[in-house]
Nucleic acid binder design. Structure first.
Lengths: 224, 224
DNA sequence: TGTACATCAGTGAACGCGCGTTCACTGATGTAC
DNA sequence: TGTACATCAGTGAACGCGCGTTCACTGATGTAC
């Protein structure tokens, strides 16, 4: 009935690592279907791969380690692609690059909601400052800041240096000219807001809604 | 050891409804602690109230109905309070009202993450158009649009009228002057992005970060 | 060329857990006659 | 004033489920002597 439940033959000696990849791929597949990391169970992954549940423990310490691995993979691929989108634009059109990146970000979030949630969902909240140092999300913040810097705005010296670094007052009150970092943060958070609300609420479904909002947002942040 | 496990005496005749309120309050309390609707179990609620799990079924058809009730309550209170924040401002300072509302929105999200998630979390995604008609979130969209209208921007005629209502081209491409509705949508999504990312990533924890970002966002949207 | 042993890849059965929900019930309070 | 009955508020025990994880194991492949 249910296909071949016990067809699997063990990998050869030294090829045990192949199963690790199979597990990761199956987990990504399931995540794409169910949408929520919390709904991803080891037993479901095992079923998807066609192995016994304990076999997963040959490659991952526990469920948490599997999820962490999925997350790192997702971050790595996402940031690399976002950067690539910007770099594909001619260097003399930094604003176009910014718009293209914003649009790609929005599209990715809408087309891959599960992956997006895996990275930026509340479940994945970074608890401690220590774990945040070196978190891949810092690379993302940097990508946005540099994209604005390319448009002529100034980078802050070291926005993530020592915690409690005193900031000048002009950086806390609305400054005469917002830094590239702050513009980047506003763009990112704005895009995040647009896309997560869009996933949640199917409001104003016209297909050009996302591009329009994203474009308006970039325009607002390129002004002044 | 564990207090009084069977102290409860039944309510009087006609006062069965009291338990319903107790259940809702206990569920809200638990939600505030655990943070995630999915982690809210009927059995945990029953424990919190001090009743047997089946007693919940005297007042709610099933788990889904309990959660739906919690959500409606949260929306009602949230929107009423947001409106009130705006109305407390003098009528000749609509921009100040807008800033106050934006700030209150951000504070609420950060201080009540569980309630916020209950309303705007991805788990609560509105599936169908039918269920969206009359959804409380439309009231929220309206509140923002009217707040911008008070600042002198034009309201769209009927943004949520018949689906597929043809829009003028100038409303889809970046228009010469953005409508109050679109400004409202950008502000809402921007605030949503700022706050959800803030909950997730404790980046740049300086206490005035949220006010500054929110203020910058409002400024950007009041320009032009 | 044989054989004992180590290592590898993977499994079957079981554990204890908390869950949503159903069922038949208990005991107090009201009502009809 | 009594009594049979209806209604109300709530319970105890059980159901079947899927879960993460542990345990002792199987059987094939390599290695030392």
């Amino acid at each position: 009935m249910a296909g071949e439940p016990k067809a699997r033959t063990p990998n050869r000696w030294g090829e045990g690592g192949k199963l690790r990849e199979e597990i990761l791929l199956a987990a990504e597949r399931l995540l794409g279907e169910t949408g929520r990391e919390e709904a991803l169970s080891l037993r479901a992954v095992a079923r998807e791969v066609g192995i016994a549940p304990p076999s997963i423990y040959l490659h991952f310490k526990d469920r948490a380690e599997l999820v962490a691995t999925l997350m790192e993979k997702a971050y790595g691929e996402f940031i690399a692609e976002l950067r690539a989108v910007g770099e594909r634009h001619p260097a003399n059109d930094p604003e176009g690059a910014l718009r293209a990146m914003a649009l790609w970000y929005g599209r990715f979030a809408l087309e891959n909601p599960a992956r997006y949630r895996l990275m930026f969902g509340v479940e994945q909240a970074v608890q401690s400052r220590e774990r945040f140092a070196g978190h891949p999300v810092m690379k993302l913040i940097d990508v946005w800041a540099r994209a604005f810097a390319a448009c002529g705005y100034e980078l802050e010296p070291d926005p993530f240096g020592a915690p409690g670094t005193p900031r000048t007052r002009s950086a806390c009150v609305t400054p005469a000219r917002m830094s590239a970092d702050r513009r980047g943060a506003l763009l990112w958070t704005g895009l995040h807001g647009i896309t997560t609300l869009r996933v949640t609420m199917p409001v104003q479904q016209s297909p050009d809604h996302l591009p329009t909002l994203a474009n308006d947002l970039v325009s607002a942040l390129l002004a002044g």
